[in-house]
Simulated scan of single mutants.
Amino acid sequence: MSSKSIRAQRRSELGTFLRSRRERITPDDVGLAPGVRRRTPGLRREEVALLAGVGVTWYTWLEQGRPINPSVHVLDAIARTLRLDRAEREHLYQLAGVPALPPAEERSMLDPQVQLILDTLDPLAAAVYSSRFDLLAWNSTFTGLFPAFVAAAPESRNVIWEHFTSPPCCNPFVDPIAEVRPLVAMLRAAFGRHLAEPAWTGFVHRLSAESPAFARMWSAHDVAEPGPHVKVLRYEEVGEIRLTTTTLTVVGMPEARLVVYAPAGEQSRQRLAHLAAHPSRHCSLPDHGHARPGIRAEADLAPIGTFPTSDLVTVELRALR
């Protein structure tokens, strides 16, 4: 089947889905008078358009499967009007060609049971990230490793942003470039699913302006999938810690990832336990100063080469359902 035929089939399915959802809602459900001579068991098209704040003709075309491209903002308004639950909203965005829910909703949609699982994983460090590498949830051992990152404002808790903007003295990774290069490649792969979303394009534009090093890596167009990785960190309090990461998917959030950091060896395990009990205060000390910015300049970058990638280690957390 050609891509044109697939798009036409998806638009037809979208129209059918929207009609089925509006037909289950009565005017009384949304505070409208029932009126007379209603030929539809639920809301009329013009009523949905009115409540969602869109044009009647435009909404009619959407239900008819016309080749129009609704924005995330409009889809969100329609979803609220039709009282779609999370699964229905996800289906709506997929049929409309927007493959994920709006990024702003990722945090509010995180199942409370995920935090319970994170806490149960102690003394292993663990955290949940969005596909854009926003930090969504974490446990206490993770806090011991990255106390300043966890303490940052929610809108600043992004792993890639932190790597490129934090001063080297506050970045515990022994080789920040080797650490961040595969992350940028994974971000580039995920970006292909969010090309028209302002939250994604704005993030890339802001970080490109903030860090020439990121702009250079981004322009290489390298892509990669998540996989096991050995991270090497060094702290003044305990010295070097080596951690092996395992990535798991989270049921109900297709683009979210739960990453578990397991110590590679007994020495790293003991040092991780010490940091979990006594988080590093180095960067939060009153007299701590920064010699220079983070990974910003072209001179900070080694030549871009290739790096190995591994298959995603996937474990569905079915306990969340």
Results as ranks from 00 to 15, higher is better:
residue 2 S to F: 02
residue 14 L to T: 06
residue 31 G to A: 06
residue 38 R to W: 00
residue 46 E to P: 02
residue 47 E to Q: 07
residue 55 G to Y: 04
residue 59 Y to V: 02
residue 66 R to F: 01
residue 75 L to R: 06
residue 76 D to N: 12
residue 79 A to F: 05
residue 82 L to P: 08
residue 82 L to T: 10
residue 83 R to A: 14
residue 86 R to K: 10
residue 87 A to Q: 14
residue 90 E to W: 01
residue 91 H to M: 06
residue 93 Y to A: 03
residue 104 A to M: 07
residue 105 E to S: 15
residue 111 D to R: 11
residue 114 V to F: 03
residue 115 Q to E: 10
residue 126 A to C: 07
residue 135 L to N: 04
residue 137 A to Y: 03
residue 142 F to I: 01
residue 147 P to C: 06
residue 154 P to D: 13
residue 162 E to L: 07
residue 163 H to G: 01
residue 165 T to Y: 03
residue 165 T to L: 11
residue 168 P to H: 06
residue 171 N to Y: 02
residue 176 P to W: 11
residue 179 E to S: 08
residue 184 V to C: 11
residue 185 A to P: 12
residue 191 F to L: 10
residue 202 G to Y: 08
residue 210 E to I: 05
residue 211 S to E: 12
residue 214 F to E: 07
residue 214 F to L: 12
residue 215 A to R: 13
residue 215 A to G: 05
residue 227 G to I: 03
residue 228 P to C: 14
residue 232 V to I: 15
residue 252 G to S: 11
residue 253 M to D: 11
residue 257 R to C: 01
residue 264 A to N: 05
residue 264 A to T: 10
residue 264 A to F: 02
residue 276 A to P: 00
residue 277 A to M: 08
residue 281 R to P: 04
residue 288 H to D: 03
residue 288 H to L: 08
residue 302 A to R: 15
residue 303 P to E: 13
residue 304 I to P: 00
residue 306 T to Y: 03
